[in-house]
Design a binder for these strands. Sequence first.
RNA 1: GGGCGGUUAGCUCAGUUGGUUAGAGCACCUGCCUUACAAGCAGGGGGUCACAAGUUCGACUCUUGUACCGCCCACCA
Length: 879
Amino acid sequence: MAKIELPKKYKSLEVEEKWGKVWKDSGVYHYDPSASRENTYVVDTPPPTVSGSLHVGHVFSYTQTDVVVRYQRMLGKNIFYPMGWDDNGLPTERRVQGLFGIKCLPTLPYDENFKPEIVPQKKGKRIVQKEISRQNFLETCEMQTGEDEKKYEQLWRHLGLSIDWNQQYETINKHSQTVSQNSFLDLNSKGFVYSIDSPTMWDTTFQTAVAQAEVEERERQSAYHDIVIASESGEEFVISTTRPELLPACVAIVAHPDDERYQKFFGSSAITPLFKSKVPILPAEHADPEKGTGILMVCTFGDVHDLDFWKKGNVPLKQIIGRDGKLMDIAFGEGVFVSEEPSAANQVMSQLKGLYVKQARRKICELLSEVGALKGDSKPTQQFVKYYEKGDEPLEYISTRQWFIKILENKEPLLAQGRKVVWHPSHMIKRFEQWVEGLNQDWCVSRQRFFGVPFPIWYPLNGEGEPDYENPIFAKKETLPVDPLADCPPGYTSQQRNQPGGFIGDPDVMDTWATSSCTPQISSHWGIDEKRHNSLFPADLRPQAHEIIRTWAFYTITKAWMHEEKIPWENIAISGWVVNPDREKMSKSKGNTVTPEDLITQYSADALRYWASKARLGTDTIYDENVFKVGQRLSTKIFNASKFVMMQLSDDSETTKDLSWDLSSIKEPVDLVWVSRMNQLLINAKKLFSEYDYAVALSQIETSFWEFCDLYVELVKTRAYKQKESAAGLSALATLEWTLQNFLQLFAPVLPYITEEVWSWHYAEKNGEASIHTSSWPTPIELAKIEISATNNEADLIGLTKEIMNAVRGEKSKAQKNLRWPVETISVCGEKPNLEKLKLVEEDLIQSCSLKNSIEYQEGQKAEDGHFSITVTLAETND
RNA sequence: GGGCGGUUAGCUCAGUUGGUUAGAGCACCUGCCUUACAAGCAGGGGGUCACAAGUUCGACUCUUGUACCGCCCACCA
């Protein structure tokens, strides 16, 4: 081949920029809709939450998926690798509110002149939020997420993710809304949804219902307050409670049925202090005699036990906390709010109404104290309390009308579906199973928010203007997506909105998971393009993190089953986390993350990808810039080794001799043994990659590559350089060329830039394949017969050669000589077959060790730690 | 309280179905400008495989228990 000019140093930034542009223009990663399903590999890419910036954890997990995808592409698969942006939902609302200092007030009219402006953040200063209309708010959300998504795409491109950018979607766009609303209609038609007005977990800050999956428990400092309560008969007892503010909502007082202290009260009533409400004293199994004073209040609603108690139907519902988390204005003496002294009770209530829960707690303690109903001081305690995962105030149970999906009665089939999916690593299925088994609520899918997918529902209004929630009007599938607050239901006119006899639109939006649980169907255009859907669903792979198994994985499995009785994907790959050296999860809030852009600039994309690819699925990885450096070094080594091979393959400029060789030129025993080792590596690597074990594959490839550089190349370089025209020289050239191509292809999924760069020097033309990433995954080649068993694993020729070279290198190192220092004699003692093998590589050894004479062979005793006993004598002088 | 994973060199991690003397990279030490690479090369030191018991001719590997770390879930007036 003709000589090519190669740069002296590897400049990763320039190379990455060059290939990034080429890949963008060439469409090398595009999906081909005409390919068969069997020959297509479909990824259900996680749509990252669009919340300002991606961090190193994203780089980590998305790279792992890309490595798998690139391998599949080289197997010849047509790849469907889309990118979604999860811009729907509360994170966006919060971000936009903070950035622009705005707040949605749905009753305001649209202001077409409104322009959002970024509000400078000042420490300790609370920003006054300007109220704007729903439409203005939504437009601001879309504008902001659009900007973020452009930045994200840029990072992903630089990282080298082989995404088909034609397959992009946003979870808030019209298409996603159509699929999501269609999903709801389909679930409704199949009887999987219902709406009900009942107590639901409610976040008072965001003023929305939340689902079980979004709830987390946090430890919180709390305190017991001892309240003295009198029974009907005037006998007093003490209740120890952490929620004294719920006293006006007290519906009963309970103790354990076997608790002898309180048995005498069962069947009678107590009178609550301050409010003078008469409440029954009842036995209840959940009362623990060991805790507190053993007797407790049942309120609306302090905890899940209170809720259970209410559901049994023996006590009234006394809602005192409003949707905004403030105590409501309750009129005692009316309805369920009984009181022996209504005017006194109302006087107390007037001091509590409008207070937030925390304020009310303090106030009521004061008031109790004044009447002598508070005993002693409060006793601090640590308590676990349920919070909305994005919220800052504890959840309350508040009675509201919500839509639910029927999960509880379908646990068994859902577990069965989960087991049909192949989990990587396999133990992660336990997370799924345990979650499903432990579920105790149906999936609440309605949210009282704005930036989300609306329900495709209206409610008829009766003559009094009261909505008929039992008979909702569902949108027609052909009209999706609909906005019930802007569009009219079938058979009505817009004049009838909010009019008696007319209709109202459902003001709620769906849980963001209700949409993201449809990501495979959003990509496949389910319900819109059946042909495309059938060729993309179920997908092959869902990559995701383990903390959202209970949400994203579970809900996606649920939807796929409810819609089509299918699994959504054949495989699920669970990535680990990136953690700090002190084992904490790296996250933005910790303020300790470096931006991925900076890291790529500093270390190169390939280096970051190398780090991500070192971690096995499901395993957490320490953030360690040293590993980036190792990746950087590997790229440089590939560059240099490739440069060396290219130099050997180039025609000799002095003789201008045209050299030609092919795989059949590989005849030298040591070359054949090397090829045999490479064959084994190819077999191992393919198996490992196919089993999603890219990290182990990489480590084997890497080890072999360094051995190639430090051992094989050193051994044959003189032969390749000085004897090009001989059969022995051509054997070396053919082996070098073939080996390097294999290494490039093996590394290509992990290091797409450096491998593409080297590929372009020579292999692109040779193989007639412009990009290494669409070249075929390498396969083992047939070997010529080797005279003796030089490939015998027990002591293959390469291994034996290594022993000699190590002995010589050790001797030179010990004598503090350079590696070119001449060797006078090498004398080898060992078993005859091994000596015979060694003779096959003697010429290469003489050259690579700078040996002045032939090797002396002696049958006899070998050393304990090898196959030979070796004596090396260095020359006196270097000449 | 239930479940899952982990504990191997100073650090980060490999270690196949049990099989000689437990590996790698980083870090450390000693050398070497050697015409692919000093962003390199060669050599070297460093481990009671968390602990205990058991199975076995033989245990980092299998069983049981304990300790510690991490995560998931549940509960707590």
